[in-house]
Amino acid sequence: MKKKLSIFSLVLAFILVLSACASGSGSSSGSSASSSSGTQKKTLRVVDDATYAPFEYMDKGKIVGFDVDILNALSKETGYKVQLANVGWDPVFVELKNKTADMSISAITINSQRKQTYDFSVPYFLSTNKILVKKNSNIKSGADLKGKVIAVQTATTGQAAVEKIVGQNNPNVKKFKTINLAIMELLNGGADAVVADNTVIEEYAKNNPGQNLKVIMDKKAFAPEFYGLMYPKGSNLRSVFDKAINTLYANGTYTKIYQKWFKASPDVNELKAQQK
């Protein structure tokens, strides 16, 4: 009996350790310094899909990226502790819908379709889709994508933008679960172009000059998009975090983080203009 018990507790301990690993992998909790109120605020469960550098990705087992830094700055500002969990793209939406997470920051574009099911913060990032092609490609604009094989990441605005041009579920649109695979497909000749967020594409082209790639912008074909924190419908976190985002704009923290990740200056005015 004693022996059985010890084996049982061993198994239990093992399961506990495993589950701790799973939920806490790469967790980055915000600073504990609570600014305004003295009462202990609850720790927020924030979910993301950490496969989207430089916004959120795994670096030696830790989730890092632009969004993570923004999240930590917001945590400091609001006094909420945060627990960030990498759950994957589709589960992000499931968790928020089921209210098993409080919030998501995962380079999520604000659109009316999503607004029906979820709440969003004010925009914290301006993004536009761009086209990544090989240097010798004859694709020069969004319209040129017709009849070409285009690789995108599933369920991104890049996919939506492309399908607006070539038609929904067009067999020439290859949809991959991660953007790396889509770019790999382009490099290996299985696709003529990749359409995705400018930051991702520019970052890749910049970091891989040997691949002979170029980035094409087409403001007409791809309207700018804005990223927001996503909440379950009716979340009461909105106003606190909206205020905090504006504080980051005002005190220069936002610009500092933006420059750290994108080596460029953000268009803060454009972002603020969206709040009207």
Binding site: V94, T117, A155, P171, K174, K175, F176, E185
Partner: peptide
């Protein structure tokens, strides 16, 4: 094989899930 965008059954389920936010 859905991972490499071969449009078989699971691939389309993923696309449908992504389009309507349904599981």
């Amino acid at each position: 094989v859905s991972a490499i965008a071969a449009p078989e059954l699971t691939y389309w389920a993923q696309q449908m899930g992504a389009e309507y936010f349904k599981v």
